[in-house]
Write a protein that binds this DNA or RNA. Sequence first.
DNA 1: AACACTCCCAACCGCAGATGC
DNA 2: CGCATCTGCGGTTGGGAGTGT
Length: 254
Amino acid sequence: MGRSPCCEKAHTNKGAWTKEEDDRLIAYIRAHGEGCWRSLPKAAGLLRCGKSCRLRWINYLRPDLKRGNFTEEEDELIIKLHSLLGNKWSLIAGRLPGRTDNEIKNYWNTHIRRKLLNRGIDPATHRPINEAGAAQVEATTISFAAASAAVKEEEKTSSGFSGKDTKNPVQERCPDLNLELRICPPCHAHPEPLKISGRGICFSCSLGLQNTKECSCRIDSIGGSSSSSDSTATGYDFLGLKSDVLDYRSLEMK
DNA sequence: AACACTCCCAACCGCAGATGC
DNA sequence: CGCATCTGCGGTTGGGAGTGT
């Protein structure tokens, strides 16, 4: 491609930000709002590249950031979201108000990985370490992360593949994965709890969101009768995204 | 006190997707 | 439609702080 560098690298500061630089950046964004990162440094009188300014603002200066230690609840939520989304730190951060993707990524690598290893769980797969092979049959968590790569590969090689196909080769390989997970409006009666690999809990409950508006216990499988048109009527905002049909592939394309 | 080692996190880098022309 | 540019993301790194010897 031969992309040009994001900014003129000469004459720009690098490394730790000074108080004065922080103040300039804050003042400028308060006056003009976020955006136009490329032109911001010059306009704000900063000898930094736009990317550096954006990162500094998002990860450190934003007023809505929640600094300080992660709570036990946040820990568990991160673990559960990671088991579902993989290293999609920005998506995970989207479910943790006041936390940034960089912060969560760092926290994962320094604390949670070790925590899971101590529990005997592989942080990459969220499966017991000593069951690496056998666990494929008796999965205890759902993981779209590993499957998403396979889906992409599948889509490359099979141009005719669509979500409506009943013969999804990925599912044939990974029977524990429901790549067409659909979320419906909250159902207080919980008539038909989602079975995640044999466990009778809904997805929200598995995330620790019992009795919340996210609690939804009716999810049709890929072979279900719901079409995209009837799912429109029951569209549900999962992970903060207004989508009619939850499809991890579409989540990535947010 | 001095050095070595480990941990942690802010910041950087490169890439890919989105957008504009 | 193709190219150039911008933005955002995930992986990695550098260096300061903390701890052990």
